[in-house]
Write a protein that binds this DNA or RNA. Sequence first.
DNA 1: CTGTTAGCGCGTTCAA
DNA 2: TTGAACGCGCTAACAG
Lengths: 334, 334
Amino acid sequence: MKSRRRATSYDVAAHAGVSQSAVSRCFKEGASISHKTREKVMEAARELNYYPNAIARGLITQRSNLVAVIISNLTNLYYPEVLAELTQRLSAQGVRVLLFSLAAESDVDEVLDQVWQYRVDGAIVAARLDPSQLAGFADRGVPVVLYNRVGEGVPVSSVCCDSIAGEYALTDGLLAHEHRRFGIIAGPADSYVGEERVNAAVRRLDMNGAEHFVVRGRFDYASGEEGLKALMRESGDRLDAVICANDLMAVGAIDCARGHFGLRVPEDLSIVGFDGVGPATWLSYQVTTVRQPVRRMTEAAVSMLLERIEKPDISPEQRLFAGELLPGASARLG
Amino acid sequence: MKSRRRATSYDVAAHAGVSQSAVSRCFKEGASISHKTREKVMEAARELNYYPNAIARGLITQRSNLVAVIISNLTNLYYPEVLAELTQRLSAQGVRVLLFSLAAESDVDEVLDQVWQYRVDGAIVAARLDPSQLAGFADRGVPVVLYNRVGEGVPVSSVCCDSIAGEYALTDGLLAHEHRRFGIIAGPADSYVGEERVNAAVRRLDMNGAEHFVVRGRFDYASGEEGLKALMRESGDRLDAVICANDLMAVGAIDCARGHFGLRVPEDLSIVGFDGVGPATWLSYQVTTVRQPVRRMTEAAVSMLLERIEKPDISPEQRLFAGELLPGASARLG
DNA sequence: CTGTTAGCGCGTTCAA
DNA sequence: TTGAACGCGCTAACAG
């Protein structure tokens, strides 16, 4: 079995005593082939260890069966779960995943160059794309589904968790419980959901005349700690509640509140997050948060994408999923 | 720019008034082409929005520039970091990542079928492969580098963190501090590192005549909690220290010790983990653990793989990296 | 149902 | 340095 060159459909054909196209048909669904020939071919294929060359197939069918998944920061603990779901769902549909993870948002253009070269059939993108980048997909007829972001000004399909409703639920709960002085730890400025969540919270607080301070974080644990320290400074150590743009920062803030400021959470300070990632539910934190329905969202993203690969002319659609309020134990809700 | 079909090198050639092969040469490093022609071609390429078709190129060069990354359980918080590092390093070398994540180890064979079809140039595998599966790679001349596992009986390149030395360091530290009754929370039976770590710990304990109880977990938070409960039951609630096969279970065990059993960690019970993942360093846990040098390991994996893609005849090599003992605050070490 | 034929888009000889 | 011609491995039309 030490074949220097890998077996081709011609080798199999010769071995089975049929034509090359007969071999080809055996590996295609619903092709007309007699039971007898198929047996012979399959037998020969097994002996020669033959696997159809998907590269060559893609060249002729104009379908690579490849989908690009572009994720900006995999280290955000929210994404591993999303990625695992996406790849498994896509695999189940016979589609391969070409993964691109960005160290910085500015790398998007380089990544897109690669995406074009590989003639992917579609893309699922959890990274910020500007209108011209989105136009690149449209020009080439490559369907895209954005994950937790929307095309700003450009019509493009997307799957999102309802940040606004979720944040309203959290904020309203806090307001109902007599919280009056709020701290907010936002996400990085280039995060779509980050801005949306924080804007929603601020709007609600303003409507209710509640005081609030805002600092910016990076969606990670350390910036939750730093954020709380900055907020305490700005507010003169008098805060009733802290709203974090994601769970990881909430966890950092909780640890900092307890460890650094000696506060009890939630008795002295309420802290809420967003996402519903694993660590949020851990006993030490039990973050009051909004859980994104990741499974339904990934399923939607995959099915929307595959549908548009089949029928490129379907118009874009935005799907918005409600998150689930998890009461947790890190905040006193109304 | 609404080209129904995407531009090919022929289109560019016609537009620039040169031959197709001239276009081809412009996109290949170190091909002999005059400055003047190159200018014309690049100009035309830009106008037509031309990107070389990597699929077609792969067909002729017998190089797909694709590397398969196969990871069994992405939800293990240790892997996202590894994956991000791997994809970024591979991307930097001009290699694309085809990602396969397994829901169950039994899916390996289906995944490999796909891997063969895509003619990947190589693979990095963090999943259990049996000898016949490894032979599949060898037969096809596809280089593999195993990540944190070794080929059992089969010679194959691998990059590992030294589980044994790491576990010895932890265990010795605990023994030096008068711990005598040990609990061990192992990983799933099909995990190579899990078994290695636990075996090392058990060996060390046996050498020192220390009593120990072993239960099995699944590498996740919940099984850390469950594991501790089971250990307490078996040991009659008298345990000095718990050795967990990874950090996530250590975190679960710590929470359970405090929340469920009302124990102080480490005063009443020492708990150690392995990996050095993010949550292990969080203030609430500060797990005493061994940190894997992920960056050096991923760098090694990538460079070993690329080297073997270039020169398929280099013999396999195993590289073993020492982990770093992080004292933490979850255990009393000697 | 089967075999023959013609490309898919590109890299790579080989002469010129 | 350039262009013509060939073929990578396969699918898809077509004729038999």
